[in-house]
Computed example of a mutant assay.
Amino acid sequence: MSGKAKWPQGVGRHLLDTVDSTNAEAFRLAPHHAGPCWIVAGEQTAGRGRRARAWASPRGNFHGTLLLHPTEPAATVALRSFAAALALRDAFVALTGLPEAFRLKWPNDVLLNGGKVAGILLESSGAGQGVQHLAIGIGVNLIAAPDPAQVEQGAVPPVTLLSETGLRVTPEAFLDALAPAYARWETAFTTQGFAPLREAWLAHAARLGETIRARTGTETREGVFQTIDETGALILRQSQGPVAIPAAEVFF
């Protein structure tokens, strides 16, 4: 493992004790920050996951948001969820030295030994079709995970970094690994587009080439996870041919 990566130049850093939600705090700070900024809290009192689900936020876990002010169209901005997933994996590998233990689950989870260790939630604000501010919310089970009984049936079981690796990492130490990792992928994205991120993400994708289920609302489709396309959509191979799914919950 290399030495500690340097904090990225020009990126702000706010460490808070308690906050309702780091994404909500990011939007409150947005008018006062011209550049990117990380907001990390010791605990959240109203953390949110995907589809407005409550996100358990006990002390010792990582609750953070990267605030950005993107200039691309909304569909392009949304591809930063893949940059965040790749950065999370890089941070985990840098801290643990276990590259084979971590896989990326479409659309925005990180798995450790097959269990969910981290999730990503993108939220944006803007006028019309534009995105003025982007909040990349990240939650990591460093030392605690939800009770498996509270997890949706068929979903990937939650795990913690501590239970799976024996490694106890503070939220601040995790941020020190994550921020430089994200900055590298952000540079790749803004200079080279989505292609290098897509290639890297697919190299670490969970269940690629295997049969999975994708649920959108009330419809569930089953097929072989073939790839993701240049828009980040999941491509499922079914008997009638490949189908592109832009958004869904995936079950193994």
Rank of each mutant, 00 (worst) to 15 (best):
G3M: 12
G3A: 14
A5W: 12
P8F: 11
Q9H: 14
R13T: 07
L16H: 08
D17I: 01
T18L: 15
T18M: 12
V19Y: 02
D20E: 15
S21H: 03
S21D: 06
T22H: 01
A24M: 10
A24N: 14
E25H: 06
A26D: 03
I39G: 03
G42Q: 00
G42V: 00
R51M: 13
R53K: 13
A54N: 12
W55Q: 11
S57K: 01
S57P: 09
R59C: 12
R59P: 10
N61C: 15
G64Y: 00
L66S: 00
L68M: 15
P70S: 11
E72G: 10
A74L: 10
A75D: 13
T76F: 10
L79E: 12
A84I: 01
L86H: 15
R89A: 08
R89L: 10
F92W: 09
L95N: 07
L95C: 06
G97S: 07
L98A: 09
L98D: 13
P99I: 08
L104H: 07
K105A: 09
D109T: 09
D109W: 12
D109K: 13
D109A: 08
G114D: 04
V117R: 10
A118L: 02
G119K: 04
L121P: 05
E123I: 03
G126I: 04
G128N: 12
Q129W: 14
G130V: 02
V131Y: 08
A135K: 15
G137R: 02
G137W: 06
I138K: 00
I138Y: 01
G139A: 03
N141W: 04
L142E: 14
I143K: 10
I143S: 15
A144D: 15
A144F: 13
A145H: 06
V151C: 05
V151I: 12
A155K: 08
P157T: 03
P158Y: 05
V159W: 02
L161H: 07
G166Q: 14
A173Q: 11
A173M: 10
D176G: 01
A179M: 06
A181S: 13
A183I: 04
R184I: 05
R184K: 10
W185Q: 09
W185H: 13
E186V: 02
T187G: 08
F189R: 08
F189D: 00
Q192F: 03
G193A: 00
A195T: 00
L197V: 02
R198H: 12
R198F: 05
E199D: 07
W201H: 01
L202R: 04
A203E: 06
A205Q: 07
G209L: 08
T211M: 14
A214W: 13
G217I: 10
E222S: 15
G223Q: 12
V224H: 04
F225E: 05
Q226C: 01
I228R: 06
I228Y: 06
T231L: 06
G232M: 03
A233T: 02
Q240Y: 15
G241V: 02
P242M: 10
P242D: 12
P242G: 08
I245M: 09
E249I: 01
E249N: 07
V250P: 08
